[in-house]
Amino acid sequence: MMTRITRPAPPGPTDTAREGQDQGRARPKRRTRGGGLPVKPLVLTLYLVFLLLPIYWLLGMSLKTNDEILSTFSLWPIDLTFANYAVILSDPAWYMGYVNSTLYVVMNTIISVAVALPAAYAFSRYRFLGDKHLFFWLLTNRMAPPAVFALPFFQLYSSIGLFDTHIAVALAHCLFNVPLAVWILEGFMSGVPREIDETAYIDGYSFPRFFARIFMPLIAPGIGVAAFFCFMFSWVELLLARTLTSVDAKPIAATMTRTVSASGLDWGVLAAAGILTIVPGALVIYFVRNYIAKGFALGRV
């Protein structure tokens, strides 16, 4: 044992003292390195500043008047105004964008999770003809470039008369959200021991009753995470949503781009609209913070 001699780093009195009691501790604190400077908090702070600065800038702009944005340069709004938000919340052309987006996103989330639940159960519990191929094929759709599908979707939904409806966008987003939901749910379901199913069947539960009463509560966090990710990916997608709508179901994201190109540049309103699109995500993220990595890894961390 040449413990403390090998590395000069900063063993210090506290570290040496702690080392003795650490044996029984559940979570050892690993800190202090890099010669006294608090490197870790510094790196983290810099990174978070890098992340938040552009968002802050947008927020600041949304609270300024257009004159102030264009003429003066200040780090915070001097002439604080909520007029930009008032414009959005009073003009149907603007706020209907939010309503439309919310509608198709919610529809998509419900459809995706509803069809993915039984499928994920099948994948996690049984082997059947072509299961591996099917599972892979589903994944390829998550990876498919939306640009490839834009034009064919436009023709498909036009030909069946669904163009410019909310359900069209909801169905189109199923292309990548259903596979995602299946993968995430399968990951969570595989963590539930199969003995539970078997015991329930022996106790006389039918499959639907078992699924609704016993199994769904067990994987409730998984359902939440799957729903969250469907919501999120449907909310952030623009290319398909814009291609499939024109007036009645136009998403807020499309409203933003079109207003910019049409009537000059109203920076304040644009910024306010942008900030309002961030709000829903920011609200729900707190609830899934511990699962978000698992969701991005498609249920496989």
């Binding site: 552009p54 968002i55 947008l58 340069f73 999120m232 644009l270």
Partner: peptide, 30 residues
């Protein structure tokens, strides 16, 4: 930190574009 970090992931992609379009402009961006 987790919540703050995940924030950019939840912004609609065109708004991400807008944010940087504004942020990088020589006349009005920081």
């Amino acid at each position: 930190v987790l919540v703050l970090m995940a924030l950019p992931l939840l912004i609609p992609w065109n708004v991400v574009g807008t944010i940087w379009q504004v942020f990088g402009r020589v006349d009005i961006g920081l």
